[in-house]
Every structure is written in structure tokens, then in C-alpha cells.
Design a protein around this nucleic acid. Structure first.
Length: 277
DNA sequence: ACGAGAACCTGTTTGC
DNA sequence: TGCAAACAGGTTCTCG
């Protein structure tokens, strides 16, 4: 899936197409994704105007003009594709939802693995919604800094890599940017989370912020599934220091280590055992 | 209560 | 060549 930079890239691509537009037609092509669509989903959304497109962690939130909020998560393989006005493309395999707007544009949600989801809440209930209530702030929110991060890691005996993937500790970071931020801050992914404090936290927090901002500026990373809403590819994958770079030299100046791949919590981790301690 | 591992689902790549 | 296993950007449940 898209991590925070990819979701933010999608949000920015959808905004000019959807913001201010009435959703004149909504086509829901299967009853469920990771979770069932809400009962009466199409009827609740059709005819509503989209007033804002927001992102919370890796969730896209569409504000509707009647106080509803459409919650969307892209899972591992979800894509949002903007179709040009007037195009009458037949649905493709794994196109699950098609939104058509009053000006004739269309947005397609496609997700072949179906780890994504779409559901509804309201502005009033959003803060307590089960999918959103336990999300920690993301690293681009103003409260995020080294002190905030070490507070969140306090007492955690899981490896720091796993802690960075825990959306209750900090949100928005996924498997790629966790490895990247740890290499930039020269911290071993195997180090216990609680030991990342002080000088280490002071390196890690800005490394996370920087890698996310750089990835957003590049339009995200395009590996297998991710596309911008426009269909264009992001290009941050060309800037990976360690992710998917097993056997390559570590980019840390004067390090000369070799990038290794290990498995933690069933996920690949890429790191340099020489400079990352 | 916490942490590790499996499960969810489909598609593509890798290895024998 | 062909088939099976491994792997893929996430989240959530179960088990110890």
C-alpha cells in the first residue's frame, strides 16, 4: 500500500477533480472490500457535494455537504484513477467503485487485493470512529518531534522497526519509509524501541519527517501498484537508500557496509549492519 | 497487557 | 518449461 506520501499524492490528485463537485452517480460493484460497505452506501453518497478532501494518516477522508464523511483506505494495492470528462471506459477487473461528478468526470477505486476499504461516518462521530480513534498523530503534524516520539516509544520492548509500523505509536509510516528513516538516522531496526530516546530520537524524528516530505515532493514511490490519481508514476523509488537494495553498498558516507534484508514481524527490513546501531 | 505470528486476497516473481 | 513457493507498500485477530 501506499504509505503516507502515496496517500497524500492521491489526495492532491483527487482534490481538483472532486472538491466542490456533486457526486451525481456512484457505482458500487461488490458488497465488500476488507470490510462490508455500509448498508445503503450508494444512496447515502449519491447527490452529495464533496466539500473537502482530507488525509488522516493513511486514510483519505471525503467531507460531504450533509455532514457525512466518506472514509477510504487503499490497503496494499488500492488505486484511485481519474478518468477524463466524458470518457466511457468499461470497468476493468478489480474496479470496485466508480464516482461520477456533475461535470462528467469520474474517479475509479481499484484494489485487486481488497485490503482497502470504504465506509461512512459523520463529522461529529469521526473522532471516535473505531478505524480512526486509535491513530497516533502523523509525523507531519505540528506536535511531532523527538520528545513526542520518545514519549511514544517509552517502555516498548518491540524492535524499533516494528514500533514505527504501529499506527498507535505514530501513523502514516509503513514498511518502506520505516527502513529508510532508520538508515538515515543510523539506528538498527532490531534495537528495542524503548532505547530510542535522547540523541537517537533526535536523529530519528527529523529523518522520518524528511523522508516523508521528500517522497511527497517526488509524487510518492511507484513499485507495483501505486500510481498518482492522474495515472502518473511517482519517482521516489529512485531515491531509496536501503529499501529493496539488498547487496548494494550503504549510502552513508564512509560506511562501505552492504545492505542486508532480514524479516521482522513477517515483513522485510532493509538495513546496514555496519552504520546502523 | 504486550508482543509475535497468522490471516485476509490476488498477482507477480523466483527457484527447483 | 512448469509448477510451487515466496513475496508484495496494511491492518487486525488470536494465541501464549
Amino acid at each position: 500500500m501506499p504509505e503516507l506520501p502515496e496517500v497524500e499524492t492521491v489526495r492532491r490528485g483527487l482534490e481538483p477533480v472532486l472538491k466542490g463537485q456533486v457526486l451525481t452517480h456512484v457505482e458500487q460493484r461488490r458488497p465488500d472490500l476488507r470490510i462490508p460497505f455500509p448498508t445503503g452506501f450508494v444512496g447515502l453518497v449519491e447527490g452529495r457535494r464533496v466539500t473537502q478532501l482530507r488525509r488522516k494518516a493513511k486514510y483519505l477522508l471525503f467531507d460531504l455537504d450533509d455532514g457525512q464523511v466518506l472514509i477510504c483506505h487503499l490497503g496494499m494495492s488500492g488505486r484511485m484513477t481519474v478518468l477524463p470528462c466524458g470518457s466511457n471506459q468499461p470497468p476493468e477487473r478489480h474496479d470496485h467503485v466508480v464516482f461520477t461528478t456533475e461535470d462528467g468526470g469520474a474517479v475509479v477505486f481499484n484494489d485487486h487485493r481488497r485490503f482497502g476499504l470504504m465506509t461512512l461516518t459523520t463529522r461529529d462521530d469521526e473522532a471516535t470512529h473505531p478505524l480512526l480513534v486509535n491513530l497516533a498523530p502523523d509525523p507531519l503534524e505540528p506536535v511531532f518531534d523527538a520528545a513526542h516520539l520518545s514519549e511514544r516509544l517509552k517502555g516498548k520492548r518491540t524492535p524499533i522497526k516494528a514500533a514505527l509500523l504501529d499506527q498507535r505509536v505514530l501513523s502514516g509510516v509503513g514498511n518502506i519509509y520505516a527502513s529508510e528513516a532508520l538508515n538515515r538516522s543510523r539506528i538498527s531496526p532490531r534495537r528495542l524501541a524503548q532505547s530510542v530516546a535522547g540523541a537517537r530520537a533526535a536523529r530519528l524524528a527529523p529523518a522520518i519527517v524528511d523522508v516523508l516530505n521528500e517522497a511527497i515532493a517526488a509524487g510518492g514511490s511507484s513499485l507495483r501498484d501505486h500510481r498518482q490519481a492522474s495515472g502518473e508514476l511517482g519517482y521516489f523509488q529512485h531515491s531509496f537508500r536501503v529499501y529493496d537494495q539488498e547487496g548494494e553498498p550503504c549510502p552513508t558516507p564512509d560506511c562501505h557496509g552492504i545492505i542486508r534484508r532480514i524479516v521482522q514481524a513477517n515483513r522485510s527490513t532493509f538495513f546496514c549492519g555496519r552504520c546502523q546501531r
